[in-house]
Amino acid sequence: MSTDPLDRPWRLWASVAILSVFVFSVLFGFVLLPIIQGRGAGLDAFESICRALGLRPGSPAAPQPASEAKAQPTTRVAWSAELMQALDRPSAIGAQLAAACTACHGKDGRSVDPKLYPDLAGQSAVALYKQLNDFKSGSRLSAVMAPLAQPLSEEQIVAVSAHFAAFPVRSLPPAQMPAPSEAIERLVARGDPTRAIAACNACHGEQSGGPPEAPRLTHQGAQYLSAQLRAFKSGERRNDIYSRMRNVAAVLSDSEIEGLAGFYSTTFTY
């Protein structure tokens, strides 16, 4: 259809115009700029062009900073897709290992004495895995749990976590649920911006987008919860990545800690 001689120059000149702008930008951005920037950073032309193109790591405008710092990690847990999938699959090995735990955490993961031992039933497997791993590595200190966790291998930790996570939570009689105070409800649902406290449920809620290792709190014994919050507050417990819980607990008052522990020790869910 476009045999008209009037159309040919269009095709030619439009292509020439557009491609020459392109070529100019490439010469400038891929060659000239990196060479000039690299000179200032003491890089040779080849290295800086490779860096500009992303073929080698680093910036073409700065020498790679050498880091000598040795970080002490908060935890030695590293998440991977395979690990997450394994935590979704309860196994027979898990059931065997669990025999060593029932004396305190109960046969079905429901603690024999919620005042002393946390429930494991219905807890997220990811959270259980992280805590066991931390007891083992010494990131979380506990005279009771450390010797129990240390002999466990990686696979055994996965198996026993998946095992307890699969049990349903303890059923609580509704009579045990006092109406929470408005201030506590606000902390749970909205946090307190004036103290930089994010809503607890932003991380602990049923549909929260929070960190994967954030444990489920509801149905847990109030004494255990308040003990943990106090431990975070004093810094005695320090295995939370980025100090997420230490930052929160540090600015909670003692009565708020009691109130929050009481709130979550019920069946309230959000």
């Binding site: 951005g29 891929f30 062009i49 860096r51 992303g54 073929l55």
Partner: peptide, 13 residues
């Protein structure tokens, strides 16, 4: 995850 050179190119365009 994108390199300086391609960022430059697209900014020029």
């Amino acid at each position: 995850h994108q390199s300086n050179a391609f960022k430059f190119l697209q900014v020029a365009l």
